[in-house]
């Protein structure tokens, strides 16, 4: 079974068929990769879950929509200036007779590029009403420092 089969499916995250147009629209992206060495995208690793990123001074806040996922099924970590959100939404009992099925299930992984290195000790993650909020602080050694002139 390929990794794709494990991705969350159904709901708003249906897989799109590949078309040549995708590459045409990704043209600017290709330029970013060539000249900046990054994809220029804020997030990667699949469309689910949707995230918003807020930045104010030395604080970055990432909010993700993860309804139906308990804290025990979520894993948040920092890897090379990126925030990785992984988790799994469990299936409801298969034995029931479904009249309508729109909600997705399965495992997911989302990678969010952070604007600067963050302090691994002060990360704060809160799960409330199906929204995960991760608050990160800029690392001390990259904060601007005032130099005294003697």
């Amino acid at each position: 079974m390929s990794a794709n089969n494990k991705r969350i499916h159904g709901g708003t995250t249906m897989l799109m068929p590949y078309t040549l147009l995708n590459d045409v629209f990704n043209f600017t992206n290709a330029f970013d990769v060539l000249f900046k060495g990054t994809s220029g995208k804020v997030s990667e690793g699949g469309p689910y879950p949707h995230v918003n990123v807020y930045e104010k001074g030395d604080i970055v806040k990432v909010r993700a929509l993860v309804p139906g996922i308990g804290a025990e099924s979520l894993n948040v970590e920092i890897k090379d200036n990126r925030l990785v959100i992984e988790g799994e939404r469990k299936k409801d009992p298969e034995t029931a007779k479904y009249l309508r099925r729109e909600r997705g299930y399965g495992s997911f992984r989302k990678i969010v590029a952070l604007p600067y290195p963050v302090n691994g000790e002060t990360i704060n993650a809160v799960l409330r009403d199906g929204i995960l909020t991760v608050t990160l602080e800029k690392r001390e050694d990259v904060k601007p420092r005032k130099i005294e002139i003697r």
Binding site: L65, P67, D92, L99, R100, R101, E102, R103, G130, I131
Partner: peptide, 22 residues
């Protein structure tokens, strides 16, 4: 909201994703 509806012997169950709703 995206919704699942399923039926068991004694009941119907409706589940809807409503993140952010109190």
């Amino acid at each position: 909201p995206g919704t699942d509806i399923f039926e068991t012997e004694g009941e119907y169950v409706i589940k809807a994703d409503v993140p952010g709703l109190q």
